[in-house]
């Protein structure tokens, strides 16, 4: 398993999320999923923190938070 070094991690605000699934469609790594059409979840084992999901989200529900 590869070791991911990441400066930022995506975090979702489910209150803002409109369940469109675009984050899942455009994540290059397949590390975000609209689970059961309801809940956006991330695979932090592999997420590279690129920010594509946050950029593509139409309702600004994802923010990129600096890793500790």
């Amino acid at each position: 398993m590869s070791q991911i070094v990441r400066s930022f991690r995506p975090v979702v605000d489910l209150g803002k999320c409109i369940k469109c699934g675009l984050c899942q469609t455009f994540c290059p790594e397949g590390t975000v999923m609209l689970k059961g059409g309801e809940e956006v979840v991330f695979d932090y084992r592999f997420c590279k923190g690129c920010g594509v999901c946050a950029n593509e989200c139409p309702s600004d529900a994802i923010s990129m938070v600096r890793e500790a």
Binding site: R6, E29, T31, R45, C50, V52
Partner: peptide
């Protein structure tokens, strides 16, 4: 059919294409 966490750069369109 594609593993998450490829060795490509963050934001690379390569793995996205294959997915």
């Amino acid at each position: 059919f594609i593993q998450g966490g490829t060795t490509c750069c963050p934001g690379c369109g390569g793995p996205l294409l294959w997915r």
